[in-house]
Design a protein around this nucleic acid. Structure first.
Length: 310
DNA sequence: CGATTTTGACCTGCGC
DNA sequence: GCGCAGGTCAAAATCG
């Protein structure tokens, strides 16, 4: 996927909405000194405003450049990752989306582009090889197996994995993704000392989405969130009904993760997971930058106001 | 007081 | 058939 296809870096941050409306210095004949003073005051504040706007404009430019750089490095990373993947597991390319069954051949699993299943080195000993395979199998099943009687629709439920960097001291096992979740279970699993938390979307039973969150055994600073299924509703911050309706609301909620998540779901399973990992990391680092989020919020609200005017 | 979380019990599928 | 492990349920506890 081309990074720039979902991130329009030509975004007009709209931080200069008044530039076209600045009063031209037409000298009119002012009859009284009172009026003259008033005009001088206005002129002064206008020049102050202009200065401020210039400053904001240059900041805007810097942000745009920053964004372009981020997209560039995203594309580089993505290409690099694809190259690595095609070199390491060419057979993977030919397989379809795996069915969630315990008997699933581990090699067919496509959901772990990074780390989790590659922490142990390959060993030529058949016994250990088997053991290694078994461990991989277990790890993968950990995130995929579903032993409940499943309906057809559930069987087709999309599974995606998201890695979220967190503080190692944070034991809450919460991943902020814009949706509201209700925890319904927690379990300690065999090959990971940290427990796994089970969440259902708060809109359940109408929304079938579930997620599992567990700290990565290999990198405790990472939370591994596994999503099953797709939301059949908007996020809690969105207006009800039509996703495209902006409804003239002046509130802008930055939900980069969610938006990208939805985009990624349109691709196949493997790409989906890869993209989400990268997107998640990008989004989390961007949303941590308060300046960026503020500027983006201003830009979006500016756009909305502009649209509502036209 | 309703919503949410916790946690032990129970269910289910799989391998032996 | 049995044991194991992951997933879910539901009563109790906690929170806002």
């Amino acid at each position: 996927m081309d990074g720039s296809s979902f991130l329009d870096i030509s975004l007009d941050l709209n931080t200069n909405p008044f530039s076209a409306k600045l009063p031209k210095k037409e000298v009119s004949v002012l009859a009284s000194t009172h009026l003259k003073r008033k005009w001088l005051e206005q002129d002064e504040s206008a020049s102050e405003l202009r200065e401020e706007l210039n400053r904001v404009n240059s900041e805007n430019k810097k942000l745009t450049e920053m964004l372009a750089r981020v997209c560039e490095s995203y594309n580089e990373l993505h290409n690099h990752l694809e190259k690595l993947q095609s070199r390491q597991s060419p057979e993977i390319e030919q397989t379809d989306i795996p069915i969630k069954k315990r008997k699933q051949d581990p090699d067919e699993f496509l959901g772990f582009p990074i780390g989790l299943s590659s922490g142990k080195t390959e060993n030529s000993s058949s016994n250990e090889d088997h053991h290694h395979h078994h461990q991989q199998h277990e790890q993968k099943n950990q995130l995929l197996s579903c032993k409940r009687p499943v309906t057809d629709s559930f069987n087709k439920a999309k599974v995606s994995t998201v890695y979220v960097p967190t503080e190692t001291s944070d034991t809450s096992l919460t991943v902020k993704d814009g949706f509201q979740w209700r925890k319904y279970g927690q379990k300690v699993t065999r090959d990971n000392p940290s427990p796994r938390a089970y969440f259902r979307c708060s809109f359940a039973p109408s929304c079938p989405v579930k997620k599992k969150v567990q700290r990565s055994a290999e990198d405790p600073s990472l939370l591994v969130a596994t999503y099953e299924g797709t939301h059949n509703h908007l996020g809690p911050n969105a207006s009800e009904g039509d996703a495209t309706s902006q409804g003239g609301s002046s509130t802008v909620t930055l939900d980069l993760v969610n938006g990208c998540h939805r985009l990624a779901l349109e691709k196949n399973e493997r790409d989906n997971t890869m993209q989400e990992v990268l997107i998640q990391q990008m989004a989390s680092s961007l949303t941590k930058d308060s300046k960026f989020t503020a500027a983006l919020a201003a830009a979006i609200s500016g756009r909305l106001m502009e649209q509502s005017r036209t």
